[in-house]
Design a protein around this nucleic acid. Sequence first.
DNA 1: TCAACATATAAGCAACCGTTTATATGGTCA
DNA 2: TGACCATATAAACGGTTGCTTATATGTTGA
Lengths: 114, 114
Amino acid sequence: MSRPGHMQPEQPTSVDDTLKSAAFLAKTLSDGNRLRILLFISGGRKSVSSIVEELALSQPLVSHHLKELKRSLLVKVEREGPFIYYELSDDRILDIVQTLSDIATDLLKARKTF
Amino acid sequence: MSRPGHMQPEQPTSVDDTLKSAAFLAKTLSDGNRLRILLFISGGRKSVSSIVEELALSQPLVSHHLKELKRSLLVKVEREGPFIYYELSDDRILDIVQTLSDIATDLLKARKTF
DNA sequence: TCAACATATAAGCAACCGTTTATATGGTCA
DNA sequence: TGACCATATAAACGGTTGCTTATATGTTGA
């Protein structure tokens, strides 16, 4: 059966819906500080305070960006005593950041060459 | 030699500068209509009016988005008579859009499962 | 030169974003 | 309980974004 009783009915997902989701993810990646945070926590789960120290950003600003990353499901959160650890939820995000960097570098280089 | 006389001096590019460029590209990808335009012109160079027709968007809106795509160097432009054709400048953009879509789909599926 | 077409630009607007400053929440340990 | 630490939230701000409506620019063919 394609729809067992205990599952939610699967609403058909249009191409446009998927593109909207992709655009939503891209928006989350569209801030330099958020990319720095993503790269930093890609080295293993990190507490908020360690991010604040490493990236030299204010604590509320880091909290705000982490909230955005969580909202787009790009990070997983774990509480451990008074500390809260953030972790990358999908490593393919790193590939995307890397490819975006490569493309940006190439496009700029090609423009200067003209 | 690392710096022949006819070349511009290469200013050192920091990791943060590269991340900023990547973030800038991501911002251009952060709108559903721009992604639709990119996918459409990935099938070969397209005139503005054909984009307007295919995507059912207003002509000024399409022009506006094309300007953004051009500003971030993601498209190349060619005039031919009264028509202006836009073309993808780097096919890796398609991989990125595809991967973003995949990740978005997986993250949403994983969330519903919990 | 003029009309018709293809595209770009300008002005305006509600909504959103990144950041700062200030304050609240929640956990730990004495 | 209360002081202390880690983190989150709220409010306010200037700046940006996506879109619409209206107008301008530029090309073609008569």
